[in-house]
């Protein structure tokens, strides 16, 4: 186990190093200057501004400085917001993104589990087909399509909820959370259904039934718990999906989160914010997947983590 974790963490750092390096050099090849008024400045002024941001130094020096700062947790300064610290910018935007992500994930997984349970316990009935249908819709329809329809009906037509922004407290978070929840809901429902059906046909369930346990007890006490364990494995992909979703959802609902900031930074080529956010996303996703893998080995003793390839 310890050997496995060490190996995984080692790969994690190689991956992060590669991402940081690739991002840095890709940003340098980008067309367009991060200095928005570059064309208006005379060469001397431009030189002063470039010197201020360290853009006048040779590339390897810039790269070395960047990596050195990175190790110390310093992501550099934003070009867009008058030299604001990128780390601070990201932290200041964390709140709304985190709330939406957490609400979407919890809501989606909870409803997904219920739907999946119903489908498995009432296999091949109208309940099963209904929840399978919802799951297919949830997997297929992109969250931004779903979000725009929610916005049109709930906010514009019926005026039940605020159209956008983050000013109405939890009311503002309802629609974006629902839009984000659709993916996790569908994944959880499909997963739990398959797992439950498999578990319900195993020997220990037959034993529990033959000993006279009620079908409710069998379903929830014996089957459900074991069906739930593998759900941990999809948390990694779900987190990635939520991140992708947040980029569009935050834009649709004009929520001051990281996703919205990232897309804006791309539009104005604010290199340091793009690099910082990319690294933040990468660390987040890689870390989630690592934790999920380790967690899975701990929860389910049948899984023996080894150094081998799966």
């Amino acid at each position: 186990m310890a050997k496995y974790i060490v190996k995984r963490v080692f790969y994690m750092f190689i991956t992060l190093f590669l991402i940081a390096t690739a991002t840095f050099f890709l940003m340098k090849t980008l067309p367009g200057s991060p200095i928005s008024s570059a064309s208006k400045l005379n060469p001397q002024q431009l030189a002063v501004v470039e010197a201020k941001y360290g853009l006048d130094q040779p590339l390897p020096v810039q790269y070395g400085k960047y990596m050195l700062n990175l190790v110390q947790g310093d992501l550099g300064n934003s070009y867009q917001f008058k030299g604001a610290d990128v780390t601070d910018l990201i932290i200041s935007r964390l709140g709304p993104s985190f709330i939406l992500g957490a609400q979407g994930l919890i809501l989606g997984v909870a409803i997904g589990i219920i739907l999946g349970m119903i489908a498995a316990l009432k296999q091949n009935t109208i309940w099963d087909y209904g929840s399978t249908f919802i799951a297919i819709i949830g997997i297929s329809i992109p969250s931004f399509v779903f979000a725009t329809f929610l916005q049109y009906w709930l906010a514009i037509k019926w005026e039940l909820l605020p159209v956008a922004l983050w000013d109405d407290g939890w009311k503002s978070s309802i629609m974006p959370s629902i839009a984000l929840a659709m993916g996790p809901l569908a994944t959880a429902a499909r997963f739990i259904r398959t797992e439950m059906i498999e578990v319900l046909s195993s020997d220990y369930i037959t034993l529990a039934k033959s000993k006279g346990a009620s079908s409710f007890e069998v379903a929830f006490k014996h089957a459900f718990r074991n069906a739930l364990i593998p759900l941990v494995t999809v948390l990694g992909p779900l987190a990635a999906g939520l991140l992708t979703g947040s980029l569009v959802i935050e834009n649709i609902f004009a929520i001051p989160g990281i996703g919205e900031q990232f897309v804006k930074a791309i539009m104005v080529s604010d290199f340091s914010v793009i690099m910082g956010t990319t690294l933040f996303f990468s660390v987040f996703l890689i870390f989630v997947i690592l934790v999920v893998d380790i967690l899975y080995g701990i929860i389910d003793p049948r899984i023996r983590l080894s150094g081998g390839n799966s």
Binding site: T15, L18, I19, I286, I289
Partner: peptide
């Protein structure tokens, strides 16, 4: 190593 890089990041 490649699989560790989130798809979304590479694409963008």
């Amino acid at each position: 190593i490649l699989i560790g890089i989130p798809n979304l990041i590479v694409v963008i």
